[in-house]
């Protein structure tokens, strides 16, 4: 099989695996509808909580409600997407403990692809709705006050285009960073199935942290989310570029648009850890 046919086969298999998982999830319709509806309701409440804080404090470190909700919405859309596609990684602990991971290895398909295809979690739509709600409100508010954006297509088309591209790439990069985190967590299950909760600090913690402007945090935490686990770098910096915020003082504005690139080395790191874990598993060190 040549490389291209291999890719096409992999992609087709991913599609089929996802279809299976959707079919399986529809077996528990009541539970599914309840989760989605419930999650959506609670999303509205949480967003209302944010509105309440804005009405009390007026602004957030110089960011208006519209601007903050814009960032918050992007992150809270990216996280559930990543969470939904990487549910298989989430269940690695159980797969390794019960020995069911072996059955993935006796099939002629990459185990990573099989894990990705294990479940596309529909339940996360409820969470996604929260991000969409915030993002939608932000877009409406921002449309009413066009000067919230640093560049307009009329005045500086190139910069405005760069902002759009950077933000779109930032969204994808944000999904990628969260997915990498789930992947890293899965790699750890080859070493230990205990104590994985610690990685939640990075996944759920990262979601929470990146939903607000990074300038909210003390230096060490900012640095952490810019360089170590770049959930901040990939989405906060493009948002700063688009909204005309300083981002990282001292850096030229255009460089902020490059933030999404940080997702690439992080994905490689995740892949390297996973391969190391898989080698360890195959050598029976588990």
């Amino acid at each position: 099989m040549n490389a291209r046919a291999g890719w096409r086969h992999s992609l087709a298999m991913y599609g089929k695996l996802v279809r299976m998982s959707l079919k399986a999830q529809l077996q528990y319709r009541t539970s599914l509808y309840l989760s989605v509806a419930g999650q959506f309701a609670i999303s509205v409440v949480e967003f209302a909580g944010m509105l309440a804080l804005f009405s009390r404090f007026g602004e957030f470190r110089g960011w208006s409600l519209a601007q903050t909700a814009f960032l918050y919405g992007l992150v809270n859309m990216a996280f559930p997407v990543a969470d939904a596609i990487s549910w298989g990684f989430d269940s690695m602990g159980q797969l390794v403990r019960t020995g069911n991971f072996d059955r993935l290895l006796v099939r002629p398909l990459s185990p990573v692809l099989q894990l990705f295809g294990m479940e596309l979690t529909v339940r996360r739509i409820g969470r996604l709705a929260q991000g969409m709600l915030a993002f939608g409100v932000a877009c409406v508010l921002l449309a009413r006050s066009p000067d919230s954006f640093a560049y307009s297509f009329a005045d500086r088309p190139l910069a405005a285009l760069a902002a759009v591209v950077s933000l779109s790439a930032g969204f994808a990069a944000c999904v990628s960073v969260f997915t990498s985190l789930f992947w890293i967590r899965a790699a750890f299950t080859f070493v230990t199935v205990e104590g994985l909760e610690a990685v939640n600090a990075l996944t759920y913690g990262g979601q929470q942290a990146a939903g607000y402007p990074l300038s909210a945090y003390r230096k060490f935490l900012q640095l952490f989310f810019l360089a170590a686990v770049p959930v901040g770098a990939v989405i906060y910096l493009p948002a700063c570029f688009a909204l005309g915020k300083p981002g990282i003082p001292g850096l030229p504005a255009w460089s902020l648009a490059l933030g999404p690139l940080a997702a690439i080395p992080f994905a490689f790191l995740a892949r390297a850890l996973w391969s190391a874990g898989l080698r360890r598993y195959a050598s029976g060190g588990g």
Binding site: M13, K16, L17, M20, T98, N100, R103, V106
Partner: peptide, 28 residues
Amino acid sequence: GVVFGQRTQLWWDLPAVDSFELLGDMYG
């Protein structure tokens, strides 16, 4: 072909016939 007595190859929530179809595709 491998059968592990205490583990399952099959998609738990779906009829076995669906698993057969998918496995067939997977093996080409």
